[in-house]
Computed example of a mutant assay.
Amino acid sequence: MERLEGGGVSVVNVVVCGHFNHGKTTLVKALTGEWLDRLPHEREMGVTIEPARAFLELGDTTVSFVDVPGHRDYIRNMLASAWSADYAILVVAADEGPCPGTIDHALVVSFYGARVLPVVSKVDLVSRDRAAEVADEVMDLLELLGVEAVVEPVPVSAKTGEGAEELLDALAELEEPPRPSEMDPLRAPVESTRRVDETTVDVFGIVDRGTLEEGRVEVQPGGRSAEVLEVESTDGSGPGVPFRARLRVKGSITRGMCLGEGLSTADRIEAEVLSIGAKVRPGTMGKVHVLSAAANVRFAEVETDAGTEVLRPYAEGHNVAHVVLELDREVVVEPGDRFLVTVGNEPAVLGVVEGVAR
Rank of each mutant, 00 (worst) to 15 (best):
L4N: 05
A278H: 12
S121R: 07
V151H: 01
V92I: 14
L274R: 15
D60Q: 13
A293N: 05
P239W: 07
R246H: 09
A164W: 00
S121L: 07
L79S: 03
P51Y: 14
D305A: 13
G70A: 08
R38W: 14
P118Q: 05
N319Y: 09
F111E: 02
V9R: 15
F243Y: 15
S157G: 11
P189W: 05
E330I: 00
V12C: 01
P313M: 12
H289R: 03
A94R: 03
A135C: 07
H318W: 14
V324R: 15
V331Q: 10
L350C: 09
T32N: 05
Y87M: 07
F204L: 11
E218W: 07
R38L: 15
E165L: 01
R216N: 07
T26S: 15
E191N: 12
G256A: 02
S84W: 00
E176Q: 15
K287N: 02
G113D: 07
L174D: 03
A271C: 10
T102G: 03
V15K: 01
V92E: 08
E2L: 14
N77I: 01
R130N: 02
S275D: 03
L350E: 08
T234N: 00
D305I: 02
T32D: 03
A88H: 04
D202M: 02
A94Q: 04
V341F: 06
L144E: 14
E34V: 12
L145T: 09
M45T: 13
D208K: 14
N77Q: 13
P189Y: 05
V134G: 08
L117D: 06
L291A: 03
L311F: 13
G8I: 12
A315D: 12
V120F: 09
R194D: 08
V9C: 00
L350A: 09
N345I: 05
P347N: 09
G210M: 12
P189N: 07
F111W: 12
A94T: 02
G205F: 05
